[in-house]
Each structure stands twice: as structure tokens, then as C-alpha cells.
Nucleic acid binder design. Structure first.
Lengths: 124, 124
DNA sequence: AACATTCTACGAAATTCTTCGTAAGTAAAT
DNA sequence: ATTTACTTACGAAGAATTTCGTAGAATGTT
């Protein structure tokens, strides 16, 4: 499975959040963040359809696109890439660095600790 | 500070690990992972020197390069980018996903938990 | 000294990704 | 019906990155 480029990821994020959408809707959404031409968005989504990153419903004139890859899977892949390219594959090293930046709320820390406890086998 | 490209990161990793090195040494190291021509490595390192990502000692004919950026800083930046581009800026979401993959050892989990406790203010 | 090896510098080709202009078709509006 | 607006398709320009060939200088070998 080919990993999405930066632009493709932007579009996937919209589709994951909004669900199946037209190019117009995706482009409007992107333009809330940065300026990007309509045909640019169209082109990228066409490429994505070719790559299999999105599906395309052509039954009406205005095509409808949807994500064809799972958000979790892509995040996993991106995580893998970062782990591999920068953290020598060590997830804990990455986690430590992510948490060590101080901008994680207590509530989030609590949730993470609960997950760890679960991973450790139920014991606190 | 400009973020390194993929190739530049490969080279930084070598320099971080091996310390100051010649192009030859870096290229040899890279070739243990993938095939890449000597002049390709040279060119990228020259560009990196221009960008300030590495220093270059030209006192002898064979130049000696060293990383000019801190490993921690670059990892932080990469983490930021991934957080922003895929995890809506939520560190805990990224951590959860990283840990949820199951390939983290008990020892590492323990260390992470200790870090969390420290972040929470010393209480368990 | 002649030859081979190693190094840097330079430039440019190749690749990948992003961007958009233009054309052509379809629908909507006046 | 004519004009206006919207949509897709296509191609190609632009930008960033990667790749390497070639030349020339320095060093090492025989």
C-alpha cells in the first residue's frame, strides 16, 4: 500500500472527518486552512483514486469521493516511518519524547496510564 | 531552522551515531542499508553544509563533517510535524496509537509509566 | 616519473510532488 | 436560446529532491 503524500494526507483527513464528499467540499475545507486551487485539489484526488487511496462514485456528474484506507492504518504507517527513520524503531523512545514536551493534559496522561496498565496485563 | 529531507535525515542519523565522519564513511554506512552513489552522498552533504545542518572541517583534503543540529531537536520537529499532520496535535492520541501496537516491552512500559508519574507531579 | 586511486566541485538529468491553465461537456439561469 | 456557472479531463509548468557523470586537483603506488 502506497503511503500518501503531504497533500494526499490533507485530503484524507477531510474525508475521514467529513465522510464521502465532492471535490468542491474538500477544496472548500482545505481552503479554510490554506489557499489551494480547485483544479489542484481535483487533480490530487484523481491521482488518489488511481492509487486506490480513495474510491470514486461517478454515477452522478459530480463525482463523490471517499477514503479507501483506514485512518488507523495510515497513522500506523506514518508512525512506522517516523519510528524507523528517527527513533531506531523504539516506540518507547518516541513516546517518551512525545510526552516529555509537557503539553499533555493530566486527563490524557491518566488515559495513557490506564492503557499501559491494560497492556501490562491488568495489574496496576 | 530548516527541517531535513529524507536523505538528509539518513545522513544525520549516521553522524549522530558515528560522530564526525568523512563522506566516505557516511557513504559506506548508508550502503549497508541501501545502494547510493558516492557523489550522491557527497552532494547531499554539501547541501547540508550550506543549510547549516552539518559543519565541515576543510583543513585536510578529505573534509570532515559533523552534525550541527541536535538529535533531540530534530526528533521534536519531526514529531511536531507528524502530530500536526496526522494526529490533530494530540500527543496522547499518538502515544496511544504507538503503544497500542503491542510491540513495546514490559520494561519500556514501566519506564514510560514512571515518566508519566513524574509528569503528573510525583504521585503514583 | 607515470599511473592509479581518492577526493571535491559543478552541473545537469531524473524523479516525485504540487500547482494550475485550458478545453470541453453538462447543467442552471435569464 | 444564449449566457453563465460548475465539473471533469488533460497536459504541462514549477518546485523540491535525488541521483550521478565528468572534470580537475591531490594523494598514493609502482
Amino acid at each position: 500500500m502506497s503511503k500518501p503524500t503531504e497533500s494526499e494526507l490533507e485530503i484524507l483527513k477531510v474525508l475521514w472527518k467529513e465522510g464521502a464528499s465532492t471535490v468542491r467540499l474538500v477544496n472548500d475545507s482545505l481552503n479554510e486552512v490554506r489557499e489551494i486551487g480547485y483544479t489542484t485539489t481535483l487533480k490530487i484526488m484523481q491521482i488518489m483514486a488511481q492509487k486506490g487511496l480513495v474510491t470514486r462514485d461517478e454515477s452522478s456528474r459530480t463525482h463523490i469521493y471517499n477514503a479507501a484506507v483506514q485512518e488507523e492504518d495510515i497513522k500506523d504507517a506514518l508512525l512506522d516511518k517516523l519510528l524507523d527513520s528517527a527513533f531506531s524503531g523504539s516506540a518507547s523512545q518516541l513516546v517518551m519524547q512525545a510526552l516529555g514536551r509537557g503539553n499533555t493534559s493530566k486527563e490524557e496522561l491518566r488515559k495513557i496510564k490506564m492503557l499501559i496498565n491494560k497492556l501490562e496485563g491488568g495489574k496496576s
